[in-house]
């Protein structure tokens, strides 16, 4: 009896905590569908979905939303493709070969992840502006690839190491070239890892704010996080249009939430993986 009561209490607590944690997200979505009049009332509207798309229409029409979306998509695509290719090659090298300098390389990959972006962005800003690449796709992409490549290598290393070398060697005995063995055997087997680390890199680049705010100062080339900050800031000058700001927040958050659900298990694994068995 005491045991069942305990389980019920645990369930109840879990539900209350869940409601608390999800509330800001719920509030964002709910407010994004309310009219300015409803929002400006002193009594908040708790019930879901006022049912107007007005905020979404306004925020996409009156602001450079689509330009920012385009910029975000291009930056993410470039950074992602380059990062995945570079990281796969490097992951193959460190998990398939023992070579002079491997240890140093692995150490660098780990150390670099410790670098606080906040302690680097002044220097990165000076370098990019020195190259004349401020407000350019190339400038921000270089920095983003350097930002996500170390973790991607580290994550992929685990997946490559999980594919037995024997499989590749068997294929090579059967007449495959090294490249062929990789393409036919290893690549399909690490595909889930590529998806997982790709999504992780996507989320980091899509959400990145600090570097974007110094490297993309021009309104024409801002990414979505900068766009969202901009509409929140402009709105703060007068009476904030919370409905529109929430609609903008939903637009920025939705892709991440979707991708997040896809890889959630792997994220925790990738970051602290191996800690238990070690």
């Amino acid at each position: 009896m005491g045991r069942r009561l305990k389980r019920w209490l645990a369930a109840l607590t879990a539900l209350i905590v869940a409601a608390m944690w999800a509330f800001p997200v719920y509030w964002m979505i709910n407010s994004s569908f309310l009219t300015p009049l409803t929002i400006s009332r002193l009594t908040p509207t708790f019930l879901p979905f006022g049912g107007t798309f007005q905020n979404y229409r306004n925020v996409t029409n009156d602001t450079p939303f689509f330009e920012s979306l385009k910029m975000s998509v291009i930056v993410v695509a470039v950074a992602l493709v380059v990062c995945i290719v570079f990281a796969t090659l490097a992951a193959l090298a460190i998990s398939r070969f023992r070579f002079r300098g491997r240890r140093t390389f692995v150490l660098t990959i780990i150390l670099v992840q410790m670098l606080p972006a906040e302690a680097m962005f002044i220097a990165q800003y000076k370098m990019i502006s020195g190259l004349g690449l401020l407000n350019s796709l190339a400038g921000v992409s270089i920095i983003y690839v350097a930002m996500v490549v170390p973790f991607t290598i580290w994550m992929l290393r685990g997946f490559v190491a999980g594919v037995p070398v024997d499989l590749e060697e068997a294929a090579m005995v059967d007449g495959c070239t090294r490249l062929g063995a990789f393409r036919r055997i290893t690549f399909p087997l690490i595909a889930p890892g590529l998806v997982a680390s790709g999504v992780f890199a996507f989320i980091q680049v899509w959400n990145e704010f600090a570097l974007a705010s110094v490297l993309l100062t021009d309104d024409e080339v801002q990414t979505l996080p900068l766009w969202l900050r901009d509409i929140a800031q402009q709105s703060n000058l007068g009476a904030p249009e919370w409905g529109q700001i929430m609609a903008g927040s939903v637009l920025v958050a939705i892709p991440v939430i979707i991708f997040f659900v896809i890889v959630q298990g792997r994220m925790a694994q990738g970051l602290v993986g191996g800690a238990v068995k070690g």
């Binding site: 905590v17 944690w21 999800a22 800001p24 989320i203 996080p225 997040f260």
Partner: peptide, 24 residues
């Protein structure tokens, strides 16, 4: 239920986190 709620909060981009909390 709890894991899903946690995941939703975890997935929020920083800028969106801040706009939502400033509204709260």
């Amino acid at each position: 239920v709890l894991q899903t709620a946690l995941l939703l909060a975890w997935a929020m981009p920083i800028v969106a986190q801040m706009t939502v909390w400033s509204w709260l």
